[in-house]
Amino acid sequence: MTADGALDRYALRRLVHEAGQRLAQAGVASPEHDARELAQWLLGCSLPLAEGADETFVSAYAEAIRRRAAREPLQRVTGRMFFRGLELACRPGVFIVRPETEVVAGAAIEAARRCTRANVTDGPLVVDLCAGSGAIAAAVATEVPTARVVAVELADDAYAVAVATCERHALGRVRVLQADAADPMTLAGLDGQVDVVVTNPPYVPAGALEDVETACHDPHLALFGGGEDGLALPTALVRRAAALLRGGGVLVMEHDARQGAALRGAALAVGFRVVSTGRDLTGRDRYLRAVR
């Protein structure tokens, strides 16, 4: 500790180490990482670059650790979340993006890029159904600069964040619409014209939530897909995607690890001709890919 009562770099590192131990005792899955992340967020720099911390930091850090130990998600504490290199606002009422969804977005981005190569005169038209925070839509617009992107979200809080996300990262390049993604009248004017439909819809089966952080802090509207198997909304969106897509267009849909076979069957039943299940980075079945 320095003469003025502030923490020197060594005392700061001890404080962060002790915070990690507290988070571990609270059952946080990544305690050391979260303790460092919260310190770096408050300091505005990485720990190796930090020279120390004053009393204001110490009290703010203690409060942040208290909230995280109470199992408030890290993203809620910091008010930010990251997705494929983009920083997004994380607000109450908005689903927190997951790493597995980055793989789903990547599959949609690759499908859009292939459309770009096939048609050099006009960029691909991509529709993101159940857009949530706008993470996927913004990622597509950022990584496929020629894409024309439309995002659809129903919930008020998520719609507001999606608008802000797309304005920040892809100003003027994403149209965000507040509407029911499964309604046949939503985007009816685009039926038969879309190159890629991507969606991370609510798909959790009834009663399947086990994680306390998800159960307490993510909006249930963004979690449960309807029905005991969670497939009511995903199946409806497969039908909606079939109407929106042109011949040869691609649907990419995130789903629960147990829903792959059912959704492949639903896609074949409404006219998709090539269907497969993609896996996430942990090797679990994670998304449907279907060609119209």
Score class of each variant (00 low, 15 high):
Leu15Trp: 13
Val16Leu: 11
His17Asn: 06
His17Ala: 13
His17Phe: 07
Glu18Met: 03
Gly20Phe: 04
Gln21Pro: 00
Gln21Ala: 13
Leu23Cys: 09
Leu23Arg: 10
Ala24Gln: 14
Gln25Tyr: 00
Gln25Val: 10
Gly27Val: 11
Val28Ile: 14
Ser30Glu: 12
Ser30His: 09
Ser30Gln: 10
Ser30Asp: 13
Pro31Cys: 09
His33Trp: 13
Asp34Phe: 02
Asp34Cys: 09
Ala39Pro: 06
Trp41Arg: 00
Trp41Asp: 14
Leu42Ser: 06
Leu42Asn: 04
Leu43His: 04
Gly44Thr: 06
Cys45Thr: 15
Ser46Thr: 13
Leu47Pro: 02
Leu49Glu: 14
Ala50Leu: 09
Glu51Pro: 00
Gly52His: 09
Ala53Gly: 06
Asp54Glu: 04
Glu55Met: 12
Ser59Ala: 14
Ser59Cys: 03
Tyr61Met: 10
Ala64Asn: 07
Ile65Asp: 10
Ile65Thr: 08
Ile65Trp: 11
Arg66Tyr: 08
Arg66Lys: 12
Arg68Ser: 05
Arg68His: 02
Ala70Leu: 12
Arg76Gln: 12
Val77Trp: 03
Val77Leu: 08
Val77Arg: 03
Val77His: 01
Thr78Phe: 07
Thr78Gly: 05
Gly79Val: 07
Gly79Arg: 02
Gly79His: 05
Arg80Val: 15
Met81Pro: 07
Met81Ala: 13
Met81Glu: 15
Phe82Cys: 03
Phe83Arg: 01
Arg84Ser: 06
Gly85Ala: 08
Leu86His: 05
Ala89Gln: 09
Cys90Leu: 06
Cys90Asn: 05
Pro92Asn: 04
Phe95Glu: 05
Pro99Glu: 12
Glu102Arg: 01
Glu102Lys: 01
Val103Thr: 13
Val103Gly: 00
Ala105Asn: 06
Gly106Ala: 07
Gly106His: 02
Ala108Asp: 06
Ile109Gln: 01
Glu110Asp: 14
Ala112Tyr: 01
Ala112Met: 07
Cys115Leu: 03
Thr116Asn: 01
Arg117Val: 09
Arg117Tyr: 00
Ala118Asn: 03
Ala118Lys: 08
Val120Cys: 03
Val120Glu: 14
Val120Gly: 07
Val126Leu: 04
Asp128Val: 08
Gly132Phe: 03
Ser133Thr: 12
Gly134Tyr: 09
Ala135Tyr: 10
